[in-house]
Design a protein around this nucleic acid. Structure first.
Length: 448
RNA sequence: GUGGCUAUAGCUCAGUUGGUUAGAGCACCGGCUUGUGGUGCCGGGGGUCGCGGGUUCGAAUCCCGUUAGCCACCCCA
């Protein structure tokens, strides 16, 4: 019986696993540099958790089933609901701001295609307990650094920055209520991949004859790329009283956010783009998505404010901002930019073994060097010297430890530095002392 | 969920108008004295041609179905 892995699930042979670990390593290092703490949560959760957050429609895209206890469960499609629960349960005892991250596998029952599989890893980074734009700036700076860490620069990717609060103000100026705004935001979110005629048709359901003119105004807003233009546009809106105040205050938030981003050196990576709305209803303020600079491909990462979610999932009032980055799109991009190389590590030593007695000696020394943390290998069965040297070379060993009958008689080991070809004999009992020096200076030809 | 394209060795691919035992390169394993290097030379294993059916004297090749992969749509937390 031949088996294959399930559709959309990957197998990681060592070279792929090494690439994956490199990605995880960079993510983790950046998160640590920003002093975020790592947490983890269950892979399997109550189905209700996701329905509560995203609505009944979500079930069609989940790996869900009934467990033996009759519970409806689902493999996690995202981390945020679990995280919101963790935070909510201990909200009052956690020191704020709460800066947490996780790297974990997630599962979505969708048709696999470019940049999207059924099992994928996500880097989730969130800040709770700080409502001001300082938290948004910190998070965006981290996002930018997490991508730069792989060698990507501002010609390779951009973070498109938008704001749902500003949209709500603009839609209020258009006379739309909350429900109408939600519908219209959904349409704006899809504008980039909808043709204009259809977009007008959809808008007409809410706005009637105004739809076409309205869309023209929206298109103008979406084309704005600098803060001054945006600011002027907002201040010119027909807003009165409280709404006018909110608009001014929101522009101050924008100034603070952009200033923070610029100060942390991420300015070159930011692109104001109100075309980003993000479909999810739970986003409440700044939203952003990282894209390949060409605009091709799927989003590399996405996130934003979700100040109401923790409460909705049963916790207290808790401002929150976060983003998630997937490994699939990132790896595709790094691959296309040739920024992924071979990450298999080479052994420090390979023992060349000349017989049963030599094997005893080699294994004893190997145990010592391995306990010191050196990477050491030796052939598991007896082989000719020629073959052993060839193998040692192919495995990329730095030194050969040669155990032949001569060496065993003399109580020495002959060490060969493969990079120089130099060889030198050392008393075996000195090995622990010699090894650290070898790693630093190697062996030079004159000594041999 | 819908549609298009594809499927031959671990990988990249040949395989003529349907005609003997399906090939190459790379990779892998072994050998070229148990004392020396990514080359070299010799040898070897590995495929019921994705799977199932059909047409035919005869199918990797033609037809139907199915599964998987890729791509696009839907969706994208």
């Amino acid at each position: 019986m031949q088996f294959q892995s399930l559709p959309g699930f990957r197998e990681f042979y060592p070279d792929a696993c090494a690439r994956r670990n490199h990605i995880f390593g960079q993510w983790k290092q950046v998160a640590r540099a920003f002093n975020f703490q790592e947490y983890d949560a269950p892979v399997l959760e109550p189905l209700e958790l996701y329905i509560e957050k995203s609505g009944e429609e979500i079930v069609g895209q989940l790996f869900n089933f009934e467990d033996r206890g009759g519970r409806s469960v689902a493999l996690r499609p995202e981390m945020t609901p679990s995280l919101a629960r963790l935070i909510g349960a201990k909200a009052n005892s956690l020191k704020r701001p709460i800066k947490w991250f996780n790297i974990g596998e997630h599962y979505r029952y969708e048709k696999p295609q470019k940049g999207r599989l059924r099992a994928f890893y996500q880097f989730n980074v969130d800040i709770f307990g700080e409502a001001g734009p300082g938290a948004d700036a910190e998070l965006i700076a981290l996002l930018v650094q997490a991508l730069r860490a792989f060698g990507l620069d501002s010609k390779d990717f951009k973070v498109r920055l938008s704001d749902r609060d500003l949209w709500l103000l603009m839609l209020a100026a258009e006379g739309l209520d909350e429900a109408g705004s939600a519908t219209v935001l959904g349409i704006i979110d899809k504008l980039e991949r909808t043709d204009r005629v259809k977009a007008v048709e959809k808008l007409a359901e809410v706005l009637g004859d105004e739809a076409d003119a309205f869309l023209s105004r929206v298109e103008k807003v979406i084309a704005i790329r600098d803060f001054d233009t945006l600011s002027a546009y907002i201040l010119n809106l027909p807003l009165e009283g409280d709404l006018a105040e909110q608009a001014k205050k929101r522009l101050d938030d924008w100034s603070a956010l952009l200033r923070g981003i610029n100060s942390s050196g991420a300015g070159d990576f930011i692109q104001i783009d109100l075309g980003i709305v993000r479909g999810l209803a739970y986003y409440t303020g700044f939203v952003f998505e990282a894209f390949e600079a060409s605009g091709e491909g799927r989003a590399l990462a996405g996130g934003g404010r979700y100040d109401a979610l923790v409460k909705k999932l049963g916790g207290p009032e808790m401002p929150a901002v976060g983003f998630a980055m997937g490994d699939v799109t990132l790896e595709d991009l790094l691959e296309s930019k040739k920024l992924l190389t071979t990450y298999i590590e080479n052994p420090d030593f390979i023992a060349i073994i000349g017989g049963a007695e030599a094997r005893d000696a080699a294994m004893g020394d190997a145990a010592l060097l391995r306990s010191m943390g050196y990477r050491l290998d030796y052939p598991l069965k007896d082989q000719g010297f020629g073959k052993q040297f060839k193998d040692a070379n192919q495995k990329g060993a730095r030194f050969a430890l040669i155990y032949g009958t001569d060496e065993i008689e003399k109580g020495v080991v002959k060490i060969r530095d493969f990079s120089t070809g130099a060889e030198q004999e050392f008393p075996r009992q000195d090995l622990a002392e010699i090894a650290p020096e070898l790693m630093i200076s190697g062996l030079s030809v004159t000594e041999g």
